[in-house]
């Protein structure tokens, strides 16, 4: 039962107040892109045993989508940040590296 802090309203939300939304930072492929690029967009997911960047919606709260960096094994949370963030922000990367110096970034 996770607790994630919603970056919009600051509420320490209980997992039951949230809705999960899968992997974050996907880049939309569409008309004009190759079958391979589109397939990757639709289906290719990191599914790491380790640091994961993911989408959550504060569904039973302010209704906003936000992103979280979380360890899929230890459930450690390195930070949450607004959904309008194309790449993981520097402070989140730094928080991960502080705990996992050997981490090589997103797969």
């Amino acid at each position: 039962m996770l607790i994630l802090t919603c970056p919009y309203c600051g509420v320490e939300a209980d997992e039951t107040e949230l809705a999960p939304g899968g992997e974050a930072h996907l880049k939309r492929a569409t008309v004009g892109d190759s079958d391979e690029a589109f397939e990757a967009y639709l289906f290719a997911r990191e599914n790491p045993k380790g640091v994961h960047f993911e989408r959550w919606r504060h569904a039973y709260g302010c209704g906003k989508w936000f992103l979280a960096a979380r360890h899929t094994v230890t459930l450690e949370v390195y930070g949450t940040y607004p959904a309008q963030t194309p790449e993981p922000p520097k402070d989140i990367i730094a928080a991960v590296k502080k705990r996992l110096p050997d981490w090589e970034g997103r797969g």
């Binding site: 809705a19 939304g21 939309r28 989408r55 919606r57 569904a59 209704g63 906003k64 989508w65 959904a83 309008q84």
Partner: peptide, 13 residues
């Protein structure tokens, strides 16, 4: 409604 908000918040903000 959630689908609309998803696209508005996360892609076409």
């Amino acid at each position: 409604h959630g689908h609309m908000e998803d696209w508005l918040q996360c892609e076409w903000w």
